[in-house]
Computed example of a mutant assay.
Amino acid sequence: MRIIDHEVLRAAAAALIEAGGSSPEEAGVVARHLVEANLAGHDSHGVGMIPRYLQNAAAGVLHPGRTGRVVADAGVMIVIDGEQGYGQVIAKAATETAIARARETGAAVLALRNCHHMGRIGSYGEQVAAAGQVGLMFVNVTGSPSLVAPHAGFDPRFSTNPICLSFPGADGAPPVIFDAATSGVALGKCRVAMNKGEPMAEGLLIDAEGRPTTDPGVMFAEPQGALLPMAGHKGYGLALFCELLAGALTGAGTSQPGNPRSDAILNSMFAIVIEPGRLVDTAWLAAETRALLDHMRSSRSAPRQPVLIPGEPEIAARAARRAGGIPIDDTTFGQLRAAGLAAGMSAARLDALGLDLQP
């Protein structure tokens, strides 16, 4: 295990992504997004994704330098095709477009399709909340094979299909950010557990025969196992609506077998952004929000286990990791170094970036 300062890790990540064909500006945006995911405690969506990104760029299923194309723009409705460019870059810009449109018209409906992996969807919810707006975001995955079985099923039929709901904080308080996969766990968390040699919790995975297991390796074996939806039929219903909204309604396509599959990680997002002042007095809204959150926190709980508001665990993780560094397991560290070498970086350059062989 290595503990790496977040700025050192960000610089190393940017250099790796630039070696994969990105401009320094693009590499900086993607690297910052990934390291912010690590800082927030979501290592599944952090720098460990870089080897896959560079492989996809080399294979021609990720296209560095593409910034997306506006397909339709009419009133509150905006349709953007990401053209398989870096999702972190395109989704950030598309979210900013939706924020500006909602400020102008009161609301914006964004259909963003065909982006390479968008990363941690909560970052776009935070972007909306920082503008004082409300966000509802639904994401599906096309391109790569399905990972999650429907409720009562054994065979994968869709991916982890995250949902992000964001609400601005009251009077300068942190926003409320609910960001979760509709599966019981994200695939990236299985990768992290496998790299660390750790089992998963019960009730998250089944093997290829439909038997419950705690072995994360079933998700990387042939034949592959499956993730289970969170909360049984409830998570399944939410995941299905991610397919309908982010897949069908955006025009991107869903997980049905008539659509092509490859090794790409293609995300599409259906988002609604709302300017709350068009609906309600903002002073009243701030007071009501504050009172509600205080009411949640006032509940009795177990010792040293206070009731938290969605988004607060990430705030605590950021503070701890900014001060103490980001842990990177040895397997992930080796994968990052190998990805750099495969992209043509010298061993000396990787050593200088902190991706050296010696701890």
Rank of each mutant, 00 (worst) to 15 (best):
L112N: 05
M49F: 09
H42C: 10
P51A: 15
V70N: 07
R101W: 04
E83P: 04
F167G: 00
D155L: 14
Y53V: 04
G135M: 02
V79D: 10
Q88K: 10
Q127A: 06
I99L: 08
S123N: 09
N161W: 02
V134Q: 00
M49C: 05
G85I: 07
Q88E: 15
V76D: 07
T95M: 09
Q88S: 15
P162G: 12
G48F: 02
G132D: 00
H42W: 03
L112Q: 06
Q84F: 13
R69H: 08
V128D: 00
H151V: 12
R157S: 13
G65T: 07
A57R: 04
G143I: 05
R66C: 04
A108G: 05
A74T: 13
P162A: 14
A74H: 14
G135S: 06
S144G: 11
G135C: 04
S123G: 10
H116P: 04
F138Q: 06
P156M: 07
A94W: 01
S146E: 11
R69V: 15
Q55S: 14
R101E: 06
V47H: 00
A72V: 10
A72E: 14
G75V: 07
V79S: 13
H117I: 08
D73G: 15
A111M: 15
Y124S: 09
F138I: 10
A58F: 03
G122Y: 02
A57T: 10
G75W: 06
P162C: 11
V89I: 15
L54P: 00
A58D: 08
G65F: 05
S159W: 03
M77H: 14
F158I: 11
G48D: 02
N114V: 10
I78P: 00
G65A: 09
D155H: 11
Q133E: 14
H45L: 11
L165Q: 07
L147H: 03
G65L: 08
A129I: 01
A111Y: 14
Q55I: 12
A94S: 10
G125H: 09
E126Y: 05
G122K: 03
V148W: 00
A107P: 01
E83W: 12
K92L: 08
E96N: 11
C164I: 06
G143H: 06
R157I: 08
V148L: 03
R52A: 11
L39Y: 08
T67C: 10
T160I: 09
C164Y: 03
L165G: 03
P162V: 14
A59K: 15
P156L: 04
G60N: 10
A130Y: 03
A108E: 00
T95L: 05
L110M: 06
